[in-house]
Design a protein around this nucleic acid. Structure first.
Length: 815
DNA sequence: GTGCCTCGGGG
DNA sequence: GTGTACGAGGCAC
């Protein structure tokens, strides 16, 4: 019998001898990789009987269900009766215990159709999560594990244990090892090929593998070609035994490439009898899973969960590291890498680039993993899942776990048909936007509601089961302003209850954070409260999300109605205090301070807060020296805030300006960036001059071809396009000239002079002999610049009038 | 306006 | 794996 202390990092299951076996990947105090196996947990789902049904008969009928299957007969293992809360009422329900998780989706179909069954529930809760929830086993927590050591050959671990007993320890330290991973590649004959791979370990070592000798870099390991790189990858993981492998976009690129090249070159990626690297499809993406290693891809986490708290609009490793870490990548272009590789010169530059990438990825992991881990503990999702989760999944899993504790069964997920119906429902009024006077403003005070929507849900008991209750009279309940809805004042809803608990726990943690002098504990507490904030803020969206288990349009509509009510109330109060309201959106309000003092601002804040009900609170965000405000297009519900601010220290805050995509030319992107920069520094004239100079350059034909290229990918055979976009047209012309263009290739094209549609004039940049200044002025440079200058009252004509008209010469030449 | 098509991250 | 899930923007029509 073995007894050890270990931290839980990942949970999955396998089927062995017709039994589901839960596998827990853990790290013990000596950083050993431990796998703990438990075959005592059973899959199940619930059937809710119709009111008048004879329970014993129904249970008997369910138990006798037999389904023919290729491997025999599928039947329930056991049927139990138990009491659960369904919606708002307590009911006796049947718990149908199955032999295997894969039997659940098959048996549930039959059971749902039986007479006497009203509905079935909780039939799609993943087995490993059900295990954690039911047994109260929390990811990232420490346990005293007791069991027998067994041999478990096909799994890369130091120790395997068959579980006897597990005791939770409530410890917050972390003892595990990590490696970051990144590959370099080049395009050769339309194929992406591996040229280098690197790992960086949390103890500061780096190992890089490549097929060519590189001088002066002692951490480089010489391997034999692509095959050698792939084998090195598998071998190094087995040698180093990291618990976590960290990538940035490894799901879609680095590990995908390893897998593709391995199958192309017939490299066996196995560990014993198990596949070492597998891809799991999930919607439009796939996830790279490595046997015995937790692969954390930071990119999906950054671009979905972190996105809203970052200023950057693009989620490149460079942009994200610049913002979070204040440092960036080693500068080298893609062309340089290809050139260097093909000519075998300056190879150490590629090594340095790879080294920097893995080093940065490790630094980013150290900064972000605390957030991932805190969300994992909160939702009982594994860190692997959290890294790839959407906000709705975080809320859903949090709710499922709370439901178990409170003896609720959760509602079912909608079917595809139900989702379609929900999508077709009329949209409802969203948040309020107090239209700004567009333009530049000086001396601005900004206020934000503290967790506006969560506090509204809690304060007014907003829940799909408390809406328009029959036990309260409308006017005695929580009335929704200007809507035919009210919420119960007698029974607490499940959603507000769990949200309130979450908010209260967060307040508690923040208090503890302030009290403690232990810096490590402070950090742990901070990431926990951050995770709670993340989940709390996603509840409103979850009520309105068509794929939600708790979808209720009326609830979502009520939340925004209360939001509008409170913001309007505060705007009124601001006016009474003599402030000019220059802008407001959802939960924030921007006031012109004018002649008033900061004391006046704070006094206003105090008065507002004394009038707000319950836990609702307005906070002072800051004072700004100058701000640029953009009028939103009318009728664009849900459009992003669009403004840019500069504070008294010169820091810029930019919100909502269009994301810069690669299907914009470099020229357009640069124009927008520079224009915004000049404007915020109060140099509007310079901004205008700059745009004019770009237009001049375009007209004079002085702009370099490279600045005008637009990049778009061909995703299918050229003949199968119904809609001929510019990239397709350019590709077709290239084919006519004898070029071969396959799906997956990126078309680099330019819009040339001539007649016809944009598509008619699109040419591959290599064939383009001219460019159409009119197109680049009106479809690229001006739209990009006008997003900034338009707000300042400039029209396209004003920008153009100062520049010379496109000469008659050019028109006559055309005709 | 609607519908089709592409991007994102990575090299 | 008890799962099968985007959301926004540009161009053609």
């Amino acid at each position: 019998m073995e007894k050890l202390l270990a931290q839980l990092l990942h949970v999955d299951y396998v089927v062995e001898d017709d039994k589901p076996v839960i596998r827990m990947l853990m790290s013990d105090e000596k950083k050993r990789k431990v796998v703990v196996l438990d075959d005592t947990f059973e899959p199940y789902f619930y059937a809710i009987p119709a009111g008048t049904t004879n329970l014993d008969e129904l249970a008997e009928k369910i138990l006798n269900t037999k389904l023919p299957d290729s491997e025999g007969v599928i039947r329930p293992k056991r049927v139990e009766t138990t009491t659960k809360i369904v919606g708002v009422e307590e009911r006796t329900v049947l718990k149908i215990v199955c032999f295997l998780p894969s039997h659940v989706p098959k048996l549930r179909e039959v059971v749902a159709m039986l007479n006497g069954v009203e509905t079935i529930r909780e039939f799609d809760i993943l087995f490993h999560r059900r295990y954690m929830i039911d047994r109260g086993i929390e990811p990232m927590d420490w346990y005293e594990v007791e069991g027998n050591t067994i041999s478990y050959d096909d799994y890369p671990c130091d120790l395997a244990i068959k579980l006897n007993n597990m005791k939770r320890l409530y410890r917050a330290d972390e003892i595990f090892s990590m490696a970051s991973f990144d590959v370099e590649s080049v395009m050769e004959k339309n194929e992406m090929k591996l040229i280098m791979a690197g790992m960086y370990f949390n103890d500061g070592r780096a190992r890089i593998a490549t097929g060519i000798d590189v001088d002066g870099r002692e951490f480089v390991e010489r391997v034999s070609g692509e095959r050698g790189i792939i084998e090195w990858f598998a071998r190094t993981l087995k040698e180093e035994k990291p618990h976590f492998l960290i990538t940035y976009n490894g799901d879609a690129f680095d590990l995908k490439l390893i897998k593709e090249r391995a199958s192309k070159l017939n490299v066996d990626l196995k560990f014993g009898k198990n596949t070492f690297l597998r891809f799991k499809r999930r919607g439009r993406t796939s996830q790279a899973e490595i046997e015995g290693v937790v692969h954390i891809d930071l990119y999906p986490f950054v671009s979905t969960i972190m996105a809203s708290s970052l200023n950057t609009e693009v989620f490149t490793l460079e942009a994200v590291c610049q913002e979070i870490l204040g440092e960036g990548k080693y500068e080298i272009t893609w062309e340089e890498i290809e050139h260097s590789w093909k000519t075998k010169t300056n190879l150490e530059k590629i090594v340095d680039y790879n080294y920097r990438d893995v080093e940065l990825t490790m630094k980013l992991a150290k900064a972000l993993l605390p957030n991932v881990f805190s969300l994992a503990s909160l939702t009982y999702m594994t860190p692997f899942e959290v890294a790839r989760a959407s906000y709705s999944q975080l809320v859903e899993n949090f709710a499922i776990r709370k439901a178990y504790k409170m003896n609720y069964v959760v509602p079912n997920k909608p079917t595809v048909e139900e989702m379609d119906i929900r999508r077709q429902e009329e949209s409802y009024e969203g948040a309020i936007v107090i239209e700004p006077k567009p333009g530049l403003h000086e001396n601005i005070a900004v206020f934000d509601f503290r967790s506006l929507y969560p506090s509204i849900i809690i304060t007014h008991n907003i829940d799909p089961y408390t809406i328009n209750c029959s036990c309260c009279k409308a006017e005695e309940a929580y009335r929704v302003p200007n809507k035919p809805y009210w919420f119960c004042k007698k029974k607490r809803g499940f959603i507000p209850a769990i949200l309130q608990e979450l908010i209260e726990k967060r307040t508690e943690i923040k208090k503890k954070m302030k009290e403690t002098k232990d810096e490590l504990l402070k950090k742990v507490l901070d990431s926990r409260q951050q995770a709670m904030k993340t989940v709390a803020n996603a509840f409103y969206g979850y009520l309105a999300f068509v794929g939600s288990r708790f979808y209720d349009k009326r609830c979502a509509e009520s939340v925004t109605a209360f939001g509008r009510h409170y913001i309007t109330m505060i705007a009124e109060m601001a006016k009474q205090h003599g402030f000019e309201v220059i802008y407001g959106d959802t939960d924030s309000i921007f006031l012109k301070v004018g002649e008033k003092s900061k004391e006046d601002v704070m006094q206003f804040l105090n008065e507002v807060n004394s009038k707000l009900p319950g836990i609702m609170e307005l906070e002072f965000e800051g004072l700004y020296k100058r701000g640029l405000f953009v009028k939103r297009k009318s009728g664009e519900g849900g459009a992003k805030k669009r403004y840019a601010l500069i504070d008294y220290e010169g820091n810029m805050v930019i919100r909502g300006f269009e994301r810069v995509r690669r299907d914009w030319s470099k020229l357009a992107r640069e124009t927008q960036e520079k224009t915004l920069y000049y404007v915020l520094n109060g140099e509007v004239e310079k901004a205008v001059e700059y745009v004019k100079s770009v237009i001049e350059r375009l007209k004079k034909g002085e702009v370099d071809k490279e600045e005008l290229c637009i990049y778009t990918t061909i995703t299918r055979g050229l003949d199968s396009y119904e809609q001929i976009g510019p990239h397709v047209a350019a590709a077709k012309k290239a084919v006519a000239r004898g070029l071969e263009i396959k799906p997956g290739e990126t078309i680099k094209y330019i819009i040339t002079r001539g007649s016809g549609s944009i598509s008619d004039r699109a040419e591959l940049s290599v064939f383009a002999e001219s460019y159409d200044p009119e197109y680049y002025i009106h479809h690229q440079v001006l739209p990009a610049a006008m997003r900034v200058l338009g707000v300042l009252g400039y029209t396209e004509d004003m920008i153009l009038s100062g520049t010379k008209q496109t000469g008659l010469f050019q028109f006559t030449k055309k005709s």
